[in-house]
């Protein structure tokens, strides 16, 4: 049994058709799990279901053995599940410092130490801590978004396309940061378009097609699987 798991999840928007059906995903602490798949495969939907932004029609979400399927997103945040959306993932009118503080809104203890840890992880942000986030570059904003999500010291971190729209150099840098975060014993689940790079840092990966599990395996296996390569990696 994994630390964080979604079992046989079926979900869709409103009364529309099911976007994911019987989809199973799990992640352990200290592990990076990539969710891959073509457009419309239900990657983001699967993540939203894990987070409680969508109601499950069937299946369940378990954390540390406890069924949390009925928890609201806010209650899941309280349990230590953090999420970085793909867009609008920072408070662009607030300063870096304020963004981090809001990230820890539910924590009452002294935040100075946590903020210091975040600045050690993202040294660039320390120099800009009093700057409004809207004025930062795309890569720096993604770092703020990651930092904000890390403020509650999550045990599960979910990232929706963390490298969307950043340059290749910044992308490598962000992946390095994600690997560093993993070392703090966090279970990381990410949806990625840059499949090759994502798999190269992932411990495991899932490939979804039309809302169902199609392939799964270690990052290396998936990278070397000829069928996965042909269909999704373009080589």
């Amino acid at each position: 049994m994994a630390f964080f798991e979604g079992n046989n999840m079926t979900a869709g928007y409103g009364n529309g058709p099911d976007i994911i059906s019987s989809c199973t995903l799990n992640a352990n602490k200290g592990e990076i799990v990539a969710i891959l798949g073509p457009n419309g495969a239900g990657k983001s939907t699967a993540m939203k279901s894990l987070l409680g932004l969508l109601n499950l029609k069937s299946g369940n979400v378990k954390m540390d053995g406890e069924d949390i399927s009925k928890f609201s997103p806010q209650d899941r945040v309280r349990k230590g599940i953090s999420f970085v959306p793909q867009t609008k993932n920072v408070f662009s009118e607030l300063t870096v410092n304020e963004n981090l503080k809001i990230g820890a809104f539910l924590r009452d203890e002294n935040l100075e130490n946590v903020i210091k840890e975040i600045f050690e992880l993202f040294p660039v942000l320390f120099d800009k801590k009093n700057q409004v986030v809207g004025e930062l570059s795309g890569g720096q904003r993604q770092q703020v978004a990651l930092g904000r999500a890390l403020m509650i010291k999550p045990s599960v971190l979910m990232l929706d396309e963390p490298t969307a729209g950043v340059s290749p150099i910044v992308m490598d840098e962000l992946f390095d940061h994600i690997v560093k975060i993993k070392k703090n014993n966090v279970a990381i689940i990410m949806v990625e378009q840059n499949a090759k790079q994502a798999l190269s840092i992932s411990d495991r990966g899932y490939v979804l097609v039309t809302g169902k599990n199609k392939f799964e395996g270690s990052g290396k296996d998936l990278l070397n699987d000829p069928e996965v390569r042909r269909s999704f990696l373009g080589a």
């Binding site: 997103p73 959306p85 408070f91 009118e93 607030l94 509650i152």
Partner: peptide, 21 residues
């Protein structure tokens, strides 16, 4: 803290909810 959370809510409602405001 409350004032900052108000500005955060005004800036980005969804993310404010995800932060537990």
């Amino acid at each position: 803290k409350t004032g900052t959370s108000m500005r955060a809510y005004s800036d980005n409602e969804d993310l404010a909810l995800l932060s537990g405001i």
